[in-house]
Lab assay of single mutants.
Amino acid sequence: LRQRHVACLARSERGLGFSIAGGKGSTPYRAGDAGIFVSRIAEGGAAHRAGTLQVGDRVLSINGVDVTEARHDHAVSLLTAASPTIALLLEREAGGP
């Protein structure tokens, strides 16, 4: 079961505080899956403080732009754009009992 949710992050002077992996033109985060995933969350960064991202979340869109088939460098450029806030649509595998 997959759950979707939106995370809104305000960029700090240190950026957004998370890294992505995967996407076309880069090493897959999961074998056989060209999706883009949250690969790291920086301690004390914007994403960590927001508490809405988890490592392993699939990134579906960035500020309304679909990145499900995107190249890695395109997703990075969307994240590093000048916008002071970033809205992410994420998909998470629902774990637990």
Rank of each mutant, 00 (worst) to 15 (best):
Leu53Trp: 00
Glu43Ile: 09
Pro84Phe: 05
Gly96Met: 10
Leu1Arg: 06
Ala87Asn: 14
Ser39Gly: 06
Thr52Ala: 10
His5Phe: 15
Gly56Val: 00
His48Trp: 14
Ala87Gly: 10
Ala81Asn: 14
Ala94Leu: 11
Ser61Trp: 06
Gly35Met: 04
Val59Pro: 00
Arg4Gly: 05
Leu89Asn: 09
Leu53Lys: 01
Thr80Phe: 09
Tyr29Ser: 05
Ala70Leu: 06
Ile20Thr: 03
Ile20Val: 10
Pro28Trp: 07
Gly51Ala: 06
Ala7Asp: 03
Gly56Phe: 00
Ala50Tyr: 09
His72Ser: 05
Pro28Ser: 08
Ala82Asn: 13
Ala75Thr: 05
Ala70Lys: 05
Val76Asn: 09
Ala42Arg: 11
Ile41Thr: 03
Ala50Trp: 05
Ala46Leu: 09
Arg2Leu: 06
Ala46Arg: 06
Leu9Lys: 02
Gly96Gln: 13
Cys8Pro: 03
Thr68Lys: 07
Cys8Met: 13
Cys8Ile: 14
Ile20Gln: 02
Ala21Trp: 04
Gly45Asp: 08
Ile41Ser: 00
Gly96Trp: 09
Ala31Ile: 12
Glu69Cys: 11
Leu89Trp: 09
Cys8Glu: 12
Pro97Ala: 12
Leu9Met: 07
Gly64Asn: 12
Ala75Trp: 03
Leu16Gln: 05
Asp57Ala: 01
Ala87Asp: 15
Asp73Glu: 14
Arg49His: 13
Leu78Ser: 01
Leu1Phe: 14
Ala34Leu: 11
Asp33Ala: 13
Asp57Pro: 00
Gly32Pro: 05
Arg14His: 13
Asp66Asn: 09
His72Pro: 05
Ala34Gln: 13
Ala82Glu: 12
Glu13Leu: 04
Asn63Leu: 00
Arg40Val: 10
Val65Asp: 05
Ile62His: 04
Val55Ile: 11
Ala87Gln: 15
Leu90Ser: 02
Gly44Asn: 11
Ile36Thr: 01
Ala87Ser: 15
Ala46Met: 10
Ala34His: 14
Asp33Trp: 08
Lys24Gln: 07
Ile36His: 03
Thr85Pro: 08
Ala42Asn: 13
Leu90His: 03
Gly25Val: 02
Ala21Met: 15
Gly35Pro: 02
Ala46His: 07
Val6Lys: 15
Gly44Lys: 08
Phe37Lys: 04
Thr80Arg: 13
Gly32Trp: 05
Ala46Tyr: 06
Gly35Phe: 03
Ala50Leu: 08
Gly32Lys: 07
Val76His: 10
Ser12Arg: 09
Val65Ile: 14
Leu78Tyr: 06
Glu13Ile: 06
Leu60Gly: 00
Thr85Ile: 07
Gly32Cys: 10
Asp57Glu: 01
Asp73Ser: 10
Arg30Tyr: 09
Ala81Val: 11
Arg2Ser: 06
Glu43Trp: 07
Ile86Phe: 14
Leu79Cys: 06
Leu53Arg: 02
Ala21His: 06
Gln54Thr: 07
His72Glu: 04
Thr80Ala: 14
Asp57Met: 00
Val6Ile: 12
Glu93Thr: 10
Asp33Leu: 11
Leu60Gln: 01
Tyr29His: 07
Gln54Cys: 06
Ala31Gly: 15
His48Lys: 09
Ser12Ile: 07
Ala10Phe: 11
Gly56Leu: 00
Ala94Glu: 15
Arg14Cys: 09
Gly22Phe: 02
Ile41Asp: 03
Pro97Leu: 11
Gly56His: 00
Asp57Leu: 01
Ala10Glu: 13
Leu9Thr: 03
Thr85Met: 10
Ile41Met: 05
Gly51Pro: 04
Arg30Cys: 10
His48Met: 15
Ser12Tyr: 08
Val59Lys: 01
Pro97Gln: 15
Arg14Asn: 11
Ala10Asp: 10
Phe37Ser: 02
His72Lys: 10
Tyr29Phe: 10
Ala10Thr: 13
Gly22Met: 03
Thr68Val: 06
Arg92Pro: 03
Gln54Phe: 07
Glu69Val: 07
Tyr29Val: 06
Ser19Ala: 15
Gly15Thr: 06
Glu93Val: 09
Ala50Thr: 09
Asp57Asn: 03
Gly56Trp: 04
Ile36Arg: 03
Glu69Leu: 07
Val55Trp: 04
Ala82Met: 11
Thr68His: 06
Ala31Glu: 15
Ala50Asp: 15
Pro97Thr: 14
Leu60Pro: 01
Ile86Gly: 02
Ala75Gly: 02
Asp66Trp: 05
Ala34Ile: 10
Gly32Leu: 05
Gly51Phe: 01
Asp57Gln: 02
Pro28Asp: 08
Gly95Ser: 11
Ala94Met: 13
Arg4Phe: 05
Thr85Cys: 13
Gly32Met: 07
Arg92Leu: 00
Ala81Asp: 14
Gly32Ser: 09
Ile36Pro: 02
Glu93Phe: 07
Gly44Asp: 13
Arg2Gly: 08
His48Gly: 08
Leu16Val: 11
Arg4Met: 08
Thr52Ser: 13
Ser26Lys: 07
Ser26Val: 14
Gly95Ile: 11
Glu93Leu: 06
Thr52Asp: 12
Pro28Asn: 13
Tyr29Ile: 04
Ala50Val: 07
Ala42Lys: 15
Gln54Lys: 14
His74Asn: 08
Val38Pro: 01
Thr68Arg: 12
Ala81Glu: 12
Gln54His: 09
Ile41Val: 11
Ile86Trp: 02
Ser26Thr: 11
Gly44Ala: 07
Gly25Asn: 08
Arg49Thr: 13
Ile20Cys: 00
Thr80Met: 12
Lys24Leu: 06
Ala42Leu: 13
Thr27Pro: 10
Phe37His: 04
Val67Thr: 08
Val59Leu: 14
Phe18Ile: 09
Cys8Tyr: 15
Leu60Val: 12
Ser12Lys: 09
Ala81Lys: 13
Asn63His: 03
Arg14Lys: 13
Arg92Val: 00
Val65Thr: 14
Ala94Gln: 14
Gly22His: 01
Ala94Phe: 13
Thr68Cys: 06
Leu89Met: 10
Ala34Pro: 10
Pro97Lys: 12
Ala82Ser: 13
His72Tyr: 13
Glu13Phe: 05
Gly35Ile: 01
Gly64Val: 04
Val67Glu: 00
Asn63Asp: 09
Asn63Met: 04
Glu69Thr: 12
Gly96His: 13
Leu9Ser: 01
Thr52His: 07
Ala70Asp: 05
Ser26Trp: 04
Ile41Trp: 04
Gly51Asp: 07
Glu91Ile: 03
Glu91Ser: 06
Ser12Val: 09
Leu79Ile: 13
Ser26Ala: 12
Ala87Pro: 04
Lys24Arg: 10
Gly17Pro: 06
Val59His: 03
Gly56Pro: 03
Gly22Tyr: 02
Arg49Leu: 11
Glu93Asp: 15
Ala34Gly: 13
Gly64Arg: 04
Leu9Ala: 03
Gly35Asp: 01
Tyr29Trp: 13
Leu90Met: 05
Leu88Glu: 00
Arg4Tyr: 04
Ala75Cys: 08
Ala75Val: 09
Ala7Arg: 01
Ala10Gly: 11
Leu89Ile: 12
Phe37Ile: 03
Gly45Asn: 08
Asp66Val: 05
Glu13Ala: 11
Arg92Asp: 00
Ala50Ile: 07
Ile20Gly: 02
Glu69Tyr: 10
Pro84Gln: 13
Ser12Phe: 06
Gly96Tyr: 12
Leu16Asp: 03
Ala82Cys: 11
Leu90Arg: 01
Ala34Arg: 12
Arg71His: 15
Gly56Thr: 02
Phe37Thr: 03
Cys8Ala: 09
Ser12Glu: 15
Ala42Trp: 13
Arg11Ser: 09
Arg14Phe: 08
Ser77Ala: 14
Val59Gly: 03
Arg58Pro: 01
Pro97Met: 11
Ala75Glu: 04
Ala81Gln: 15
Asn63Pro: 01
Ala81Tyr: 09
Asp57Phe: 01
Leu1Gly: 08
Val76Leu: 13
Leu90Gly: 01
Gly25Cys: 07
Ser61Cys: 09
Arg49Ala: 12
Asp73Phe: 05
Gly32Gln: 12
Arg49Ser: 14
Phe37Tyr: 13
Thr85Leu: 07
Val65Pro: 00
Thr85Tyr: 10
Ile20Ser: 00
Leu16Asn: 05
Ser77Tyr: 11
Glu43Met: 10
Asp57Lys: 01
Gly45Met: 08
Asp33His: 11
Ser77Asp: 11
Asp66Gln: 05
Gly23Lys: 01
Leu1Ser: 13
Leu9Asp: 03
Ala82His: 12
